[in-house]
């Protein structure tokens, strides 16, 4: 009851001054809280975003060229599959050299070499070659391709992915070199991963 009495004693003018002061103080503290709070959030958010997004760099491939076979060893008109052997780095683990993919090489009668990635552009299965039908065939969803890589039938959105080839002469022998790349699957455009 005492406090009520003393409250009544405060004259009107002083009371409103107090009110204003309290309000200012409160506003000020609210601003402080939001500024300090955002500082706190920033200290957490900036490293968090950096951390999360930097791991996305993983798997970005570097184009690498592989020497696969002597040109003379390829039989004209018969595609042959070659395995790409390389070291694979997965985040912190470095694996010893092993298969990382394969390519189909075919030589035409006039000696021109074409290379196709054996990864199906539909969903990434490995494409076979059916010698009797002279067709590439993916066993997963029955995608078929012509020997020149063009679509025949099946669910695939594009033809087989052609890879760049070069011929290099080493000690008198002509060698076929292929620049191995992986492409996004399931889309009509041939778009390299990474």
């Amino acid at each position: 009851m005492q406090s009520v009495h003393s409250g009544l004693l405060i004259d009107h003018c002083r009371f409103s001054d107090l009110k204003v002061l309290t309000m200012r103080r409160r506003k000020f503290l609210k601003h402080c809280t939001s500024i300090l709070g955002s500082l706190y959030a920033t200290i957490l958010a900036v490293p968090a975003l950096g951390f999360l997004f930097s791991t996305l760099k993983r798997g970005n491939q570097t184009d690498r060229t592989y020497r696969l076979t002597r040109l003379n060893d390829l039989e004209p008109g018969v595609p042959q599959r070659f395995t790409i052997i390389d070291q694979r780095v997965d985040a912190w683990t470095k694996y010893p050299p092993g298969p990382i993919g394969s390519v189909w090489l075919s030589k035409s009668k006039d000696g021109a070499v074409t290379a196709f990635s054996s990864t199906c552009p539909h969903l990434g299965c490995v494409i076979d070659y059916v010698a009797g039908d002279e067709e590439y065939f993916c066993p997963c969803h029955a995608a078929t391709f012509q020997p020149d890589g063009a679509m025949v039938s099946g669910p695939q959105p594009r033809g087989m992915d052609e890879l760049k080839t070069t011929i290099e002469t080493i000690r008198g022998d002509q060698w076929v070199k292929v620049e191995y790349q992986k492409f996004e699957t399931g889309i009509a455009e041939k778009y390299p991963i990474g």
């Binding site: 900036v46 490293p47 968090a48 950096g50 951390f51 997004f53 930097s54 791991t55 985040a91 912190w92 683990t93």
Partner: peptide, 17 residues
Amino acid sequence: WGSVHYIETQVDLGWFV
């Protein structure tokens, strides 16, 4: 060990986190 080493050396601000 490899994954923590990766956090410390490869991940952006991994050492900070």
